[in-house]
Design a binder for these strands. Sequence first.
DNA 1: TAGGTTGCTGACCGCTCGGTCAGTTAGGCA
DNA 2: TGCCTAACTGACCGAGCGGTCAGCAACCTA
Lengths: 237, 237
Amino acid sequence: MKTQKKQSRLSGVERVDQIYRVAAQMICERGYDGASMSDIADAVGITKAGVYHFIPSKKELLFTIMSYGMDTLEATVIRPAGVIADAEQRLRFIVVTHSMLIARSSTNEGHDPVTILVEEELGLSPAHRRKIRQRKRAYVDMVRGTLEELNGEGKLKEINATAAAFSLLGMIMWLARWFRPDGQLSREQVAEEICKFALGGLLHQEFLQPKTVAKTASNTLAKPLPKISINKNGARR
Amino acid sequence: MKTQKKQSRLSGVERVDQIYRVAAQMICERGYDGASMSDIADAVGITKAGVYHFIPSKKELLFTIMSYGMDTLEATVIRPAGVIADAEQRLRFIVVTHSMLIARSSTNEGHDPVTILVEEELGLSPAHRRKIRQRKRAYVDMVRGTLEELNGEGKLKEINATAAAFSLLGMIMWLARWFRPDGQLSREQVAEEICKFALGGLLHQEFLQPKTVAKTASNTLAKPLPKISINKNGARR
DNA sequence: TAGGTTGCTGACCGCTCGGTCAGTTAGGCA
DNA sequence: TGCCTAACTGACCGAGCGGTCAGCAACCTA
């Protein structure tokens, strides 16, 4: 019957854009290894060889997508934050804007490169991985710098700036794993909640004791974990 | 020269334990797809066929490892926490113990199943994924429940319990990505820092304003992100 | 309408993967 | 000492992967 040949050619730039977009979404859903070049080609509507007419290699494809994710992060969060003089306002801006960027990426609008940024470092070549890591580290350093600035102003609680910076970014990046645009909270609300949590913590001030149960927990973990002995049928319980 | 044939046979249970341990570490380092069965067999010191004498399939191998990770989490964190009556103490225990468990997994002692738990869901079959997800959800529900309990006691700030629970677990799980046992902070210290952060937040109380810059950020993101147009050479800047 | 440029195809390649199987060898026990 | 069981090998398989290449066909321009 030969329903339709669908010989809709696109211009080079259009096709390249389309390939990157489709690939980003696919890698986001199935992972780098799970999204084969044939899959991507099928989704685009051309042959694998057609894809390779525009893209040099799969690794380059991933690197370009992740670089674009970093570009987006820098243009939307890092550079605008850089011109905010007040450290506290800068911190709020970073948390809220980055959270909303990730929540937006989870939406159907498909700006998934920011999400892939986090997950697929293993697919990169060592040289590419180094470049991406370097840009990530610059971001972490900026956040830590802001925290140290706040410390200098006496606004920061007694918290290790490095651990705080990583933890803060952790809770933001984790958003990509659980946020659903059709959930009960909107993007704006969820960004607001995270900001409240990060700056103010969970509990009211009067309930905070200086020391916690770390000693207790340390005892619980004192004896090494049991040897891994696993019964053949995947550990039901 | 034939240095050594190393024909050291092990008993079944010993070999199985060894395989699971080596596989866990390898999957942790290279990812599920990056760790081939031949690699694992080589690391164990036997043939791939030898491995398949004990393991039914690679997917089962991953599932068993992740199930063991969940077992560990339940035995070390969830069940002990379940018997703590006071909600605040329970929350502190969860944060500190889970953090230390993850920090310990990053150590050479190689209890990496807890780390793999987070990362490799894509490698599972739908049925297995469902089982793991179910156990994870139970954990999230428990944390959220604890937060709601605290809310009932008037101890919790005005924060959405669901968002808070996910964010809290996010900052804990993120530990696996940045904690290094040879770093400046010990396991205990880092667990303590995360607990302080989570319960008390970053800023001193008197600096907290009710509303943040969400509106501003919303404006920044109002115009859709630029089309993905990427120049061929991976986005240098 | 001729001709070059460029988007794209179909067939193919080498390789590695997860997995199999018939057969071999070591160790424990009678 | 002999034998049975269980640990383990080596050779092999089909499938799917990333990637290539000669050639075709659509479009732009002159």
